[in-house]
C-alpha cells in the first residue's frame, strides 16, 4: 500500500529526518511515536505532499507519489494538527469544498447527518474560527468519515478531545480497523498505540526505530 524509502529532510541544514524507511501493507495500522520535534508531523506532511523533502521515494499503491499525476493521491487522506480549513467558512461549507476538491459529490444532508453524529449539528453553520480545539477534532473526524480513502494519515487524533470525544474517536478508529482500512497515526500514548497499531515505529531524532 505504502512504501516509504530513505526520506531525508532538514531545516536550515539541521537534519529532521534521516533516511526514514518503512512499509505499510493494506489493512495494517502503523503508529508513529516519538518525542516532540522528532519529525513525526514532518514525515506525515511529506507523505501527503504538503512538504517537500530532499531525498527519498514514496510509493503509494505502487505509484510514485513524487512525480506521478495528482490523481494518484485521490485515496490518500491527511488530517493534521491544524484543521486545514478556512476560518471564514462554516463546517458545512468547508466540508463541501474539501470533498469537492477530492472529486466527491458532496451531499448537504449527508454532511449534516455526520456533523450531528459527532455533536456538531448546532454549530454546523457557524464559521469554524469560533470552534474549540475539541470541536475541530470532531470536525476532522466527520471529514474522514465522509471521504473515501484507502490510506489515512492522522496526526494526533486524540488531542483536545473531551470524554465523549475520546469515545467517539475510539469508536471510529476501531470501526475502521475492523473494516480493514489502512492507517498511519501519530500517537503519544503507549497503551493506545498498542491497542490500534499492528506496527509501532519510534522516531528518535529523525531516525526510525521499530519497537
Amino acid at each position: 500500500m505504502l512504501s516509504v524509502s530513505n526520506i531525508s529532510k532538514s531545516f536550515n541544514y539541521r537534519s529532521v529526518l534521516k533516511d526514514v524507511s518503512f512499509t505499510l501493507n493494506a489493512g495494517e495500522t502503523v503508529v508513529i511515536m516519538g518525542k516532540n520535534g522528532a519529525g513525526k508531523t514532518t514525515l506525515l506532511r511529506i507523505i501527503a505532499r504538503i512538504m517537500a523533502c530532499e531525498k527519498g521515494k514514496i510509493l503509494f499503491q505502487n505509484q510514485n507519489l513524487f512525480d506521478g499525476e495528482p490523481s494518484i493521491r485521490k485515496k490518500l487522506l491527511y488530517i493534521g494538527h491544524a484543521p486545514a480549513m478556512y476560518t471564514a467558512l462554516s463546517a458545512i461549507e468547508n466540508l463541501t469544498l474539501a470533498l469537492n476538491l477530492r472529486y466527491i459529490k458532496a451531499n448537504a444532508s449527508k454532511i449534516l447527518d455526520r456533523l450531528n453524529h459527532f455533536g456538531l449539528g448546532m454549530q454546523a453553520n457557524d464559521p469554524i474560527s469560533i470552534y474549540s480545539q475539541g470541536m475541530l477534532q470532531r470536525l476532522k473526524l466527520a471529514y474522514a468519515e465522509l471521504t473515501d480513502w484507502d490510506l489515512l494519515l492522522f496526526d494526533e487524533p486524540f488531542t483536545g478531545l473531551d470524554q465523549d470525544g475520546v469515545a467517539l474517536m475510539d469508536k471510529a478508529l476501531t470501526q475502521w480497523i475492523k473494516e480493514g482500512k489502512t492507517m498511519c497515526m501519530v500517537l503519544h500514548n503507549m497503551e493506545r498505540a498498542k491497542q490500534y497499531g499492528d506496527q509501532i515505529l519510534y522516531l528518535n531524532h529523525g531516525v526510525m526505530e521499530s519497537l
Binding site: K9, S10, F11, N12, Y13, A52, E54
Partner: peptide
C-alpha cells in the same frame, strides 16, 4: 526562511 525552501 529555511534554506531548503528558499532554494525552490
Amino acid at each position: 526562511g529555511h534554506a531548503e525552501r528558499v532554494k525552490r
